[in-house]
Design a binder for these strands. Structure first.
Lengths: 194, 194
DNA sequence: TGAAAAAATGAATGTTTTATTCATTTTTTC
DNA sequence: GAAAAAATGAATAAAACATTCATTTTTTCA
């Protein structure tokens, strides 16, 4: 038998356990037990509980971001690239219930009021992706001549709002519906009128 | 203002919190916070955390049993009384998600393997109710001349099995359906043939 | 109103739980 | 089969938690 466990397996399991109980209520032992390994073994992969949590969150996010990158990789048309980035990104997250639970629950990831953010890399990576698409669109004169930095951040806020909104349970309209509606509006504003 | 809180309010809240996190993962402070009172105040009503839990469970059960008693109170016909006891009892429990969560999760309430039961009063009260209905039915010659004690325990086991079964998630048939099916069978066996 | 009784508070304390380490054992590598 | 890597879990340190109680606040009732 190869190694009894692997980083991927550890973080996948930890994601589920942290999602179920939250950081405070999960014991390191809970995760070890779920993995069927000794507690000490976990410490060969992480420095401490906090580190385990952070690596776990980053694992989830990275996996999500990778999927989005792959989804837009082959696409030539900027407009479509923008749409796919937005819709698939949203869809993949909706599917990953554990990651979503954590993103929604942990106020240090997407704070509702301004304060220190725990994982700035997440925002940077996502905003950069948006920027690169916007830049391409502006250059190709498909999008209006917008302020790329500001628009990227604006769009990212819109995105995050919907991640959190999922939890707030809107009445009447489904969040999915509202998201697509807002997306259309933004895209419309973005496109150069012929 | 009258007292800031009351036993009923405390146990109602505690029921929800214990149901959400389980005994180990809930802190006494969690319940106090939810009630918007200080931790120390709780100790005016209960001896310790274990006592709080036990009183909470008993509060939930008592409320359930009272509802069942009230539901059958005015009924004359034994057969109908039996049916109402069984169906309403099951229905009330299905509605009380917090109580059900605790009954299903805590193995010391309805153990699947023989061991010391934590709340014997629960079983005694329920079995006694069943016995009293059976006794009346036999006396009135509506039910067959069964062994009342044994049949009461048998029926109670059937009942408990379905409380737990709810959790096991059967495929195909709904638990509700299966319960009513079994109930019909038992009732049929119980009734004297004309 | 105001003095006694009842209720509520939350900081302080001691116990329990939990995180973390590391000497030892087991498994893998070559 | 010897060295290196991985895994273990009992032991220890650190943190979380339950519980107490001296003090404050609120209610009661003359």
């Amino acid at each position: 038998m190869a190694q009894k466990t692997s980083p991927d397996k550890i973080f996948e399991t930890a994601l589920a356990v942290f999602a179920k109980y939250g950081f405070r209520r999960t014991r390191v032992e809970d995760i070890a037990t779920e993995l069927d390994i000794a507690t000490g073994t976990l410490y060969r992969y992480v420095k401490n509980k906090k580190d385990l949590y952070e690596k776990t969150v980053m694992f989830g996010i990275k996996r999500w971001q990778t999927k989005v990158f792959e989804a837009i990789a082959g696409i030539e048309d900027v407009t479509e690239q923008f749409i796919v980035m937005a819709k698939k990104g949203y869809g993949y997250l909706a599917d990953d219930v554990h990651l979503r639970q954590i993103l929604i629950t942990d106020p240090s990831i997407f704070p509702l009021t301004p304060r220190k953010v725990r994982f700035p890399e997440i925002d940077i990576a996502s905003i950069n992706l948006i920027k690169s698409i916007l830049k391409k669109g502006v250059k190709k004169k498909v999008f209006c001549n917008i302020d790329i930095n500001m628009t990227a951040e604006l769009f990212y806020s819109f995105y995050v709002m919907f991640i959190i909104k999922t939890y707030i349970k809107s009445d009447g309209h489904s969040t999915q519906q509202m998201f697509e509606n807002g997306l259309e509006l933004i895209l419309n504003g973005l496109l150069r009128k012929a």
